[in-house]
């Protein structure tokens, strides 16, 4: 964990720097000490990490980046079933909760859509750019699916002007071409 850029020793390091640099030695598990709980293998994990890190190639890192990016891209998809159930359960009546939930259902994907670049920024470099395109596309598609869910919900609530009655106010009574009157006195 001491690897990194070469250190320039400060003239007078603050206490925390000194503390950080002189971390207490790691507890060495010994056979005589308290046994590890079953299933715990400190040596394997720490050992792997300490060993893998130095050997990680650029390609591996990129793979990892893409893998991570896929995870992020798939996240909205994972929350879709939950959202769908919530929307179904909240009912089609116009109440503060259902309205707020529906509002959030629209807000989050729209926000996400506007910040697609930012979401994948940390995984993006010259090499991963091409591979991330598909990831981003999936991400956008899943957000759109979430929006579609929202639209389905709004439609269920009757807020979409999709029926004839919504456009009735724009229709006009027909103009009669004749005039008539009844000359009849009761």
């Amino acid at each position: 964990m001491q690897s990194g850029p070469p250190k320039i020793s400060p003239v007078a390091s603050p206490q925390w720097v000194i503390d950080l640099n002189t971390l207490p030695p790691k507890r060495k598990p010994t056979a005589t000490a308290i046994p590890d709980p079953p299933g715990f293998s400190s040596s394997s994990s720490s050992g792997k990490k300490t060993e893998a890190a130095p050997v990680a190639s650029v390609a591996d890192t990129d793979d990892l980046f893409v893998k991570k990016a896929w995870e992020i891209a798939m996240a909205p998809g994972k929350s879709l079933p939950m959202n769908a159930i919530m929307m179904y359960m909240s009912g089609n009546s116009l109440q503060i909760f259902s309205v707020m939930m529906t509002f959030m259902l629209f807000m989050n994907p729209i926000k996400a859509l506007f910040s697609v670049g930012a979401a994948f920024e940390k995984f993006e470099n010259e090499r991963t750019k091409g591979r991330l395109f598909l990831v981003k596309l999936t991400y956008v598609a899943l957000q759109l699916v979430t929006i579609a869910l929202g639209i389905w919900k709004v439609n269920g609530m009757g807020l979409l002007p999709t029926t004839r009655s919504d456009w009735l106010a724009w229709e006009r009574e027909r103009t009669p071409l004749e005039r008539s009157a009844i000359a009849f006195n009761s």
């Binding site: 029926t163 004839r164 009655s165 919504d166 009735l168 006009r172």
Partner: peptide, 12 residues
């Protein structure tokens, strides 16, 4: 005021 009678299913 309204040209049509609106049904419950929002048809007219």
């Amino acid at each position: 005021a309204s040209l049509a009678r609106v049904n419950a299913d929002r048809s007219v």
